[in-house]
Structures are given as C-alpha cells and as structure tokens.
C-alpha cells in the first residue's frame, strides 16, 4: 500500500504530461495537417508531428507503469530468489561443517569408548586370571586336604582290616587246629598263641 502511495506522486506528473501530449498531438494532427504536408512532404518525410507527440505521451505513461508494476516486482522476485539460494547454500555449508564437527566428535567418542572397553576387558581378564589362580590354589589345598584325609582313612581302614584279618586268621587257625588235634582247646590261651605267631610273622615280613 505504501509502495503504491509512493508511486502515484512520481507517476502522476508523467501521466498528466503524457495525456497532455496525447491531446496536444491529436490537436496538431487534426489542425496542422495541411501545414505539415506543405513543410514535411516537401522534404520527402511522411511525418505527422501530432502522432510523434502522442507517441511520446504514450511512452511517458507506459514506461513508469511497466517499471513500477512489473519490472520492480520481477527484480524483487529475482533478488529474493538469489537471497534464498545464498541463504540455502550458507545453511548447507554450515550444516556440512556441523556434520563434520559432529563426525569428528563421534569418532573421538568412539575411539575413547573403544579404549575404555579395551581397558575394562583387560581388567576383567586380569581379574578372571587372579580368580582362577585363587580358585586353583584353593582347589589344590582342598585336594591336598582330601588326599591327606583319604590317606588317613586308608591307613585306618588298613589297620582295621588287618586287625579283622588277624582275628579271622586266628579264628580259622584255632578251628583248624581243633579239627586237627581233635580236642577243644582253651580259646583264650590258643588265641594268644596265634596272635604271638602272627606278630612274629609280621615282624619277619
């Protein structure tokens, strides 16, 4: 609206002058045809100065109207487009640099994360190895204990078996002797004899 307000004060004088020239041209064309014919046709020029004046008048009116209503909007549209393109390119450049920055940040972060992960894995491996050593030493100690216990038990069982065997052998020997001798021997007395015999045999062995 303000643009149109600015246009009219500039355009109005040209419009008035242009219209005046058109009317003046019409008057000249209508009233000086004979004079012009005498003067200009003598020079061989097919001229009507009224038309010339009117043509200038038309130009004076048309020129600013074309400029204001069509040329300036076109220039503005072209300028806007160029500005938009420039803005878009600037934004794209900015985004590209931001992307590059982010990429480098991510790469750094990734490298740092990888290093941390590697450290953690190493720490875990070390911890696991320590644990393995501890467990192995504990297992070894437990195995040694069990072996010792087993040895003790074996010794005890061996002793027990030997005792039982001795008793059994003694009983069998007595029973055999009873059968051979044919008399009922005093058991306690005979048993002592067998035990002494067995003890002497063990001592020899």
């Amino acid at each position: 609206m303000s643009k149109e307000k600015a246009f009219w004060p500039k355009f109005l004088p040209k419009l008035v002058i242009g219209a005046g020239m058109m009317v003046g041209g019409m008057w000249i064309s209508a009233n000086t045809a004979d004079l012009q014919a005498t003067l200009l046709e003598a020079l061989g020029l097919p001229l009507d100065l009224g038309k010339t004046l009117a043509a200038i008048g038309v130009f004076l009116i048309v020129s600013p109207a074309i400029d204001f209503f069509y040329l300036q909007p076109l220039k503005e549209a072209i300028d806007d487009r160029s500005e938009n393109l420039e803005k878009t390119f600037t934004e794209a450049e900015q985004l590209r640099s931001e992307m590059a920055e982010m990429k480098s940040g991510y790469e750094k972060q990734l490298a740092s994360t990888e290093a941390q992960a590697r450290e953690q894995i190493q720490a875990q491996i070390k911890e696991a190895q320590d644990l393995r050593k501890t467990l192995m030493s504990e297992a070894s100690a437990a195995a040694d204990d069990l072996l010792a216990k087993a040895n003790d038990e074996i010794t005890a069982e061996k002793l027990k078996a030997l005792t039982e065997l001795r008793v059994h052998v003694a009983t069998l020997s007595i029973q055999a002797a009873e059968k051979i001798v044919g008399e009922n021997m005093d058991s306690d007395k005979n048993r002592k004899l067998v035990d002494d015999f067995i003890t002497s045999v063990e001592a020899k062995n």
Binding site: L45, P46, L47, D48, L49, G50, K51, T52, L53, A54, A55, I56, F59
Partner: peptide, 14 residues
C-alpha cells in the same frame, strides 16, 4: 505503429 515514421520519430526523440 512501427511502420509509421511519426511513431518511430517519437521513440527516437525519447
């Protein structure tokens, strides 16, 4: 219009 010398003279004068 441009086949008329008077009109063309107007344009030339401008």
């Amino acid at each position: 219009p441009t086949a008329d010398l008077s009109f063309n003279l107007g344009m030339a004068l401008i």
